[in-house]
Write a protein that binds this DNA or RNA. Structure first.
Length: 421
DNA sequence: TCTGGGGTCCTAGGACCC
DNA sequence: TCTGGGGTCCTAGGACCC
C-alpha cells in the first residue's frame, strides 16, 4: 500500500501561516518576476483565478475581491517543507520525497493497522506540528494513491483522507475521475483520449493494452497497469543524482544589452557551479541558451543553444563561467532582437571522485577548491551572492521583480515573528 | 550501370511532472 | 509595462565518422 500526502495549496498556506489575518481572504502566490499565478487558496480558486495565468490579466479580479498577493518566497517554502517531511517520516519506515509539497509513504508493512485511521492521524499531527493542512490518499499503487489524494480533496474535503480499500471503492474513484486529471495524462493525451471516446479513468483502464502502447508509449502503458492495481512505478527512496542542473531566469524587462546578458550568464553559471559542488559532482559539458519572447508575435524571434565540452570535468566557478561566456559569445546576436531569457545548463554530471584529468591539463586546482569551499560556506551563511566573482558584478541590472515578498520568518533571525505574552 | 550501414553527437522540440 | 523555473524522458533529422 502507498499513501500520497500532499499539502493543500502549499505556498498559499505557508504565507497564511505567518499572517493569519488572511485566513478568510483569497490568497495567491506569483512566480518569479511576479509573472504568473502559481498557487491559490480555496477562496482564490472559487473566484475563478486560474493556475498559470499572467498576474496582469487577473489584476482586476485581485482588486475587486481584495486578494492578498505574494511574490514567491522559496526560502520560506523550503523550510516549511522540511518540517512537514520530518513529521511524515515519524509515521512510516520509509518515504519518498516526491516534490516540495508531496511525499509517498510506504505503508506495505503497516497493513495490520487501520490505514484509514492512520491517514487521519497523519493529517491531524502534521497540521498540529506545522500548521500546514494536508490531504492523504491511500491505495495499492502510486498512481492510484495520487488519484485517491485528489478524490479526498474533491469528494471528502472535511475529512481529507481517502483509502481505496476495495475494488468497489477504486472503481467508484476511477469512474469519478476525468482522464485529464490522471497523473501522467497532460493536455495533449487528454485530447487524444477524448477524441477516442475515453472520458473517465475507468474507461481508460478498460482500453486495450496495445492501443495504449501504440498511442501513449511505454509511459502510458505503465500508467494503465498502475490504475488496474499493478504497481509499475518504482520506489525512489534515495533521490537519484541529477543528470542535468540548470539555472535560468527571464529578464525583468527585454534587453539586447550584451554586457547585461553576460552578467546574467555569469551569475547563472556560478549558480550551476555551486549546485554541482553541493552534491560533490563535476560536469563534462556546459550548455548556454538564449531566447526572445515568443509571446511577442510582432517581434523578430531568435532562440539558440550551444554545448561546450570541458577540457577536464569541473565544478570550479571561474571555469564554468568562462565556458558559458564562450558559448554565449558564439550564439549571441547583437542586432535586431530583444532577449527575454538566458540560461546555463551543466550536463554529463559525474561524481567528483571519478574525475579523469586531461593529460595536457597541468592546472593545479587545489587552491581554487579551497577558496570556493570558503566562498560556499560564507554564501550559505549570509545569503547567495555575498561573495562572488568579479564578472558577476554587484548591481544586478537584470534583477527580478518581487514586489510582494514576505519575510524569511523561519530562517532569518531578524525576521522571526515576535510574540507578546 | 551500380550510390551502405552503423554509430555518435548536436540541436530542437514535444510530452509530462511539480 | 506585465506570460516561471527546474526537472525527466523520448524522438527526429542533420552532420560527421569509419
Amino acid at each position: 500500500m502507498y499513501a500520497l500526502v500532499d499539502c493543500n495549496n502549499f505556498y498559499a498556506s505557508c504565507e497564511r501561516l505567518f499572517q493569519p489575518k488572511f485566513n478568510h481572504q483569497p490568497v495567491v502566490v506569483l512566480s518569479n518576476n511576479d509573472g504568473c499565478v502559481i498557487a491559490r487558496s480555496d477562496e482564490a480558486k472559487a473566484l475563478g483565478i486560474v493556475m498559470g495565468t499572467p498576474a496582469y490579466m487577473s489584476q482586476e479580479l485581485f482588486n475587486k475581491h481584495n486578494v492578498a498577493v505574494f511574490s514567491s518566497n522559496y526560502t520560506l517554502y523550503g523550510d516549511m517543507s522540511n518540517r512537514v517531511m520530518k513529521t511524515l517520516a515519524t509515521f512510516v519506515p520509509r518515504l519518498e520525497l516526491y516534490s516540495i509539497d508531496e511525499a509517498f509513504l510506504d505503508m506495505s508493512e503497516l497493513t495490520f493497522k487501520d490505514l484509514f485511521k492512520l491517514g487521519f492521524e497523519i493529517r491531524t499531527v502534521v497540521t498540529r506540528n506545522t500548521g500546514i493542512p494536508v490531504s492523504v490518499g491511500i491505495a495499492p499503487t502510486k498512481a492510484l494513491a495520487k488519484m485517491a489524494n485528489r478524490y479526498a480533496k474533491k469528494k471528502y474535503k472535511p475529512i481529507g483522507v481517502f483509502y481505496a480499500a476495495s475494488q468497489t471503492l477504486i472503481d467508484e474513484m476511477l469512474e469519478f475521475t476525468d482522464v485529464g486529471d490522471i497523473w501522467g495524462v497532460g493536455h495533449q493525451y487528454a485530447l487524444l483520449l477524448k477524441k477516442n471516446g475515453i472520458h473517465t479513468a475507468k474507461e481508460f483502464t478498460n482500453m486495450n493494452a496495445d492501443w495504449i502502447r501504440t498511442n501513449m508509449s511505454v509511459t502510458g502503458l505503465r500508467l494503465w497497469n498502475e490504475l488496474r492495481g499493478v504497481p509499475a512505478i518504482e520506489w525512489e527512496f534515495e533521490p537519484k543524482p541529477k543528470q542535468n542542473i540548470c539555472t535560468s531566469r527571464s529578464f525583468g524587462k527585454l534587453t539586447n544589452n550584451y554586457s547585461i546578458i553576460k552578467e546574467a550568464v555569469s551569475n547563472y553559471a556560478a549558480s550551476c557551479a555551486e549546485k554541482l559542488r553541493k552534491q560533490s559532482s563535476v560536469c563534462k559539458r556546459i550548455n548556454v541558451f538564449i531566447s526572445t519572447n515568443p509571446h511577442k508575435i510582432n517581434h523578430k524571434q531568435y532562440k539558440h543553444s550551444i554545448t561546450i565540452h570541458c577540457a577536464t570535468a569541473t565544478n570550479l566557478t571561474s571555469e564554468i563561467i568562462s565556458y558559458a561566456l564562450k558559448g554565449l559569445d558564439i550564439i549571441f546576436q547583437p542586432n535586431g532582437y530583444l532577449f527575454m531569457k538566458v540560461g546555463v545548463m551543466v550536463l554529463d554530471i559525474v561524481p567528483e571522485a571519478e574525475v579523469q584529468i586531461n593529460m595536457f591539463d597541468k592546472k593545479d586546482r587545489t587552491k581554487d577548491k579551497k577558496a570556493l569551499n570558503a566562498m560556499d560556506k560564507i554564501n550559505r551563511a549570509y545569503g547567495t551572492g555575498t561573495v562572488r566573482m568579479a564578472v558577476q558584478r554587484f548591481d544586478k541590472r537584470f534583477h527580478l521583480r518581487a514586489d510582494h515578498l514576505s519575510k524569511k520568518y523561519t530562517t532569518r533571525l531578524s525576521e522571526v515573528v515576535n510574540i507578546k505574552i
